[in-house]
Amino acid sequence: MAAILEIDNLTTNFYTEYGTVKAVDGVSYYVDEGEIIGLVGESGCGKSVSVLSAMQLIQTPGKIDSGRVIFDGEDILQYDSKGEKMRSIRGGKIAMIFQEPMTSLNPVLSICRQLTEALEIHLDMDIQSARERAIELLSMVGVPEAAVRIDDFPHQFSGGMRQRVMIAMALSCNPALIIADEPTTAVDVTTQAQLLELMNDLVTRLNTSLIIVTHNLGVVARYAQRIYVMYAGRIIESGPSEEIFENPRHPYTIGLMRSIPRLGEKRGGRKLIPIDGMPPDLIFMPPTCAFLPRCTYKTKQCQEEPWPALRQVGEKHRTACFVDIGEKE
């Protein structure tokens, strides 16, 4: 399988009045054709910024300082961010789904108009066939009575339905890749389940690749084939999702697993083991591992040497840690 999108050593900084925020610091990852990957981490870890950078959607004071984003064999970071080529990729070949559907949809345009616009621009469809295609897309994402509801406006839809519309928009131009940035954070659990099942079905059927960006480990466990865990602007662990969940090797990933309550745990049963402290200030980053102050496995080496690079700890399983935390310790 060939990688459809490859991000190589991407660095994005935000130049604020307080100093330089190292939002994404040399991040590399890839997605294969038809693959679902998960990008997991807490707020401020750079997961969203990394995908927005790939799409050249970073605004001042943010700046992409280095790296390559290879899509279809070409480095799309070289394209002009407002140019023809980049626009044909954005929304055409790579589609995005955002967290808050209400702000991503234009409130004064009907759903029909918003869906057909992309079809007319990217696929050169005429009005009639674009409308037919839009209705087809809406019913595909499970909007009941699509032919009637297509002329409604975004505020007439509920949160879950709006997110379905967003999915329909993302699929409209048969993209090779969909990037879903916290797609279900704003909706309830039962709606989340509906949306995730829907997205999974659709991308599997259409052989589209999918990047799910989320803070919720559970969301990616069911669907993602591979997972990247990010912390303080870097990828600290990556691997097949079963490996990551069953045999996490980075102290941060291990900490996360221990700190979340599991369904079905008895009251007073297992005590949660929180990760002490807070994520680092991205302006004042230590030269050593950024997780060091919160780490329970730290050694002398961690305090002396700079942040370690990712290293192989299993087939396809990589972690950025000096310490060899044994399997199933």
């Binding site: 402290g277 680092p280 200030d281 004042f284 230590p286 030269p287 060091l292 102050p293 002396e304």
Partner: peptide, 16 residues
Amino acid sequence: MAENLNNSTEPADVGE
């Protein structure tokens, strides 16, 4: 480590 402590702006592992 010594380098760390010299730099006062760094909230390193000096902790609480």
